[in-house]
């Protein structure tokens, strides 16, 4: 397996300078396969790695296996073949969850009058193991307030989470994810259902978390625009990896392969913004 990993590694970063090798890997897929219930593979022979400080974007159409990839990384699924590692440990056995934040696309509990204020939801991000006195803990902890400030929703602190707009809920979930100061932040289609202005503000927020707070970001999206704003490395996936590298090297051909029809790349302006 080590020989294979070396081979894959060499193929992964054809154009990147040597500095990359110095940054530790925080999440790594090695020849990962996954199929649901033994059917057609949803993820096919995927290998790539995310290094500390990266803003990694995984791009792919609906049904391309992006979400499966994310669930594998979070240890919610076990690969059928190959391996998925978080901070050097198989993700299904990983326990040090304070290093990881996660912003899901959808939350199961919302939509049924879930009785929680924004603050209570953000506090959940500070969970650090069994605490029998949790029910008596006071609100207003510093880390919660800071996370709310960073996410730009400090003024919504005492509001019921259900009364928030879609964009505000996403920010609340971000605040929840970053409250514990994770090293690695996973985001699943974070802007679906958010209007264009909200989307831009959202991407600014993620970029600043990456650049200013030094958080490694792993974002999946079907929206190429989302990926282009701030991402430092990009993987295009349609069950298997179609392209992997810096976003400015994505060509129309890659996208045609990805989406099954010709796509003009009109995103070069956005590209100049990233470092």
């Amino acid at each position: 397996m080590t020989a294979l990993a070396g081979e894959v590694q060499a193929g992964l970063w054809p154009d990147e300078p040597d500095t990359d090798a110095e940054r530790p890997t925080v999440c790594e897929f090695t020849e990962t396969w996954y199929s649901y219930g033994g059917g057609e593979p949803a993820v096919e022979n995927v290998s790539f790695r995310v290094r500390r400080g990266d803003f990694a974007a995984v791009l792919g159409p609906n049904g391309s296996g992006k979400t499966t990839l994310l669930r594998l990384a979070l240890g919610l699924l076990k690969p059928s073949r190959g391996s998925v590692e978080l901070f050097g440990e198989p993700s299904s056995r990983f326990r040090d969850w304070s290093r990881v934040g996660y912003v899901p696309q959808r939350v199961e509990g919302l939509g049924i009058h879930f009785p929680a204020t924004v603050e209570e939801i953000v506090e959940q991000g500070l969970y650090s193991g069994f605490d029998p006195l949790a029910i008596f803990r006071r609100h207003g902890r510093k880390a919660v307030l800071e996370a709310l400030e960073l996410a730009g929703i400090a003024h919504l602190r005492t509001r019921p989470i259900e009364s928030l707009s879609v964009g505000q809920r996403q920010r609340a979930l971000i605040a929840r994810a970053i409250a514990g100061r994770p090293e690695l932040l996973f985001l699943d289609e974070p802007v679906s259902g958010v209007d264009a202005a909200g989307r831009d503000r959202f991407h600014e927020l993620i970029s600043s978390l990456n650049r200013e707070q030094g958080m490694t970001v792993f974002l999946i999206s079907h929206d190429i625009g989302a990926v282009m704003q701030g991402a430092t490395v990009c993987a295009c996936i349609n069950r298997t990896i179609v392209f992997h590298g810096p976003p400015h090297r994505i060509t129309g051909e890659h996208l045609a392969e990805l989406y099954g029809f010709p796509v003009d790349v009109l995103v070069h302006d956005a590209l100049h913004e990233h470092r």
């Binding site: 669930r71 326990r95 969850w97 304070s98 899901p104 509990g109 959940q124 969970y127 193991g129 949790a134």
Partner: peptide, 18 residues
Amino acid sequence: YAELTQSAFDPDLAHVAG
């Protein structure tokens, strides 16, 4: 209380919270 409220909000989020 913390485990129960986390799982009620979202089981996946709860898993990733530890």
